[in-house]
């Protein structure tokens, strides 16, 4: 168990290291580092001074070491637009994105899991077929377009819900959250539903496939032979076996939710990291772009690491393998 953990940690560290190399090379070799790191509004003399200050006249390997050094301290330089450290600008936006992604995940699980369970247990019913057809639509509908249609229907035509921004927020644990106020919650509904759409279909289909596999297993039949109630068979025997793949997917997809929040945040004017990165790309705010990319890399690598550990804890069979 411990050895597996350490091995995974080393692998994760290696991946992060490799990604720093890719981002560094991408920025410094493919792109023009002068463009990327220096405010284009400066004049020639200022440029030269900044180039020297930033060490861009140094050999590449030395620059890379400098990059790593800054990285270790969380120093990506100041944002051109906000004039503050890039990481700080991103960190301020983090709660909004986390809140949105978490809400979307909860919605996807709360809707997708039961429906998938139902469609898997009773595949012949018409209602199950309707659910499956709906999930195909959920896969095919372009998320951003559905977002626009949400705005059109619920905000413009019906006027039920607001379509822009976070609304009123309340402070909790040192960050601002929308879900703590009525107004904020109303602002959260549409973006969260929009972001949840694709993942709901995914969880639904995975759950259904899992159920259909598990119900054929002998141990389900044996559980029936013991005279257990159907509710216990479904909620304990079947569900517990499903949890392993489903939790893996939920974990993996949480990262992808944060990545895809780029789209939803842009549509609903949600002031999170996703909207920030799009604005930054359009405004060429390079320090923020680099900081965002590196942050995502670290996020995804650690997420995979955590999922690995959860997997080990959930599945007693894997635990044994780890020992051996």
């Amino acid at each position: 168990m411990i050895t597996t953990l350490i091995r995974r940690a080393i692998q994760a560290g290696f991946v992060i290291f490799a990604m720093t190399l890719i981002v560094f090379l991408g920025v410094n070799v493919i792109g023009n580092p002068v463009d990327i790191l220096i405010n284009p509004d400066l004049n020639q003399a200022e440029r030269l001074r900044v180039i020297q200050n930033l060490g861009l006249d140094q050999p590449l390997w030395r620059q890379y070491l400098g990059f790593l050094h800054g990285l270790a301290q969380g120093n990506f330089g100041d944002s051109f637009v906000y004039g503050r450290p890039a990481l700080q600008v991103i960190a301020e936006r983090l709660p909004a994105t986390l809140e949105l992604a978490l809400c979307a995940m909860v919605i996807a699980i709360v809707i997708g899991l039961p429906l998938g369970l139902y469609a898997g247990l009773y595949p012949e019913r018409i209602s199950s077929r309707l659910i499956m057809t709906g999930s195909i639509l959920g896969f095919s509908l372009p998320t951003f377009w559905v977002g626009l249609m949400f705005i059109l229907l619920f905000a413009v035509q019906l006027g039920w819900l607001p379509s822009n921004g976070r609304g009123e927020t309340a402070e909790f644990l040192g960050a601002k959250w929308s879900f703590l106020t009525r107004d904020g919650l109303a602002h959260l509904v549409l973006p969260a539903l929009n972001l949840a759409l694709f993942k709901t279909s995914l969880i639904l289909r995975l759950t259904r496939a899992g159920v259909q596999e598990v119900v054929l297993q002998d141990f389900v039949k044996f559980a029936r032979a013991k005279g257990l109630r159907e509710s216990r068979i479904v909620l304990v025997h079947i569900l517990k076996n499903l949890m392993i793949p489903v939790i893996t997917i939920i974990g993996l997809e949480f990262g992808s939710l944060i990545a895809f929040s780029v789209v939803t945040e842009s549509i609903f004017g949600w002031p999170g990291m996703g909207k920030l990165i799009i604005d930054s790309i359009n405004l060429l705010d390079r320090p923020v772009i680099v900081a965002y990319l590196m942050m995502m890399v670290v996020l995804f690598v650690s997420l995979n690491f955590v999922i690995d550990i959860c997997y080990t804890l959930l599945d007693p069979r894997v635990r044994l393998d780890g020992k051996g």
Binding site: V23, G26, L252, G255, S256, A259, F260, V262, V263, I277, I281, I289, L293, M296, V297, F300, V301, N304
Partner: peptide, 13 residues
């Protein structure tokens, strides 16, 4: 292990 949109953003960035 990275979502497609993130890879695309990386390239476009």
């Amino acid at each position: 292990s990275f979502p497609t949109i993130l890879m695309a953003l990386m390239v476009l960035a």
